[in-house]
């Protein structure tokens, strides 16, 4: 007698294993990143409305809640970037002849570029 049984998938499946939870956290980071980008667009709009509006906007942003949000968004962005950087060797496989270029070099190239771009931005921001 055949009566194949289908086991239901628990809605909390992502809590059952550390890797699933880390994956889910990586997915959730985009909420903070998207929210930050929307707020950044609002900030640009306020800047376009003149110095007074922008100063009022900055005062409002210095509240505890907003600072907390920005700290969380920064943590989310770092987690997002680092986890994706570390996944790159699986996406990009480079062979030199028969040998595979070690994954650490592929992932490491991300960090080198990240550092280089950060130095350039820091130079632009801090030179004045």
């Amino acid at each position: 007698m055949r009566e194949p049984y289908r086991r239901p998938m628990s809605p909390t499946w992502w809590l059952n294993k550390r890797n699933y939870l880390l994956f889910m956290l990586r997915e959730l980071t985009v909420i903070f990143i998207a929210a930050f980008l929307v707020l950044y667009l609002v900030q640009l709009a306020r800047l376009a409305q003149g110095a007074e509006t922008y100063a009022a906007f900055l005062r409002q942003r210095s509240s505890f809640g907003w600072i907390l949000f920005h700290i969380l968004a920064l943590i989310a962005a770092l987690y997002h970037s680092i986890t994706w950087f570390n996944l790159l060797p699986q996406v990009m496989v480079v062979h030199r002849g028969e040998e595979r270029v070690p994954p650490v070099f592929i992932a490491g190239s991300n960090y080198v570029v990240w550092l280089a771009i950060s130095v350039v931005i820091a130079w632009i921001v801090l030179r004045s």
């Binding site: 294993k17 890797n19 699933y20 994956f23 997915e27 996944l87 699986q90």
Partner: peptide, 9 residues
């Protein structure tokens, strides 16, 4: 695929 990555683990 959303790249959970557990298949490779």
């Amino acid at each position: 695929c959303t790249f959970v990555g557990e298949c490779s683990v």
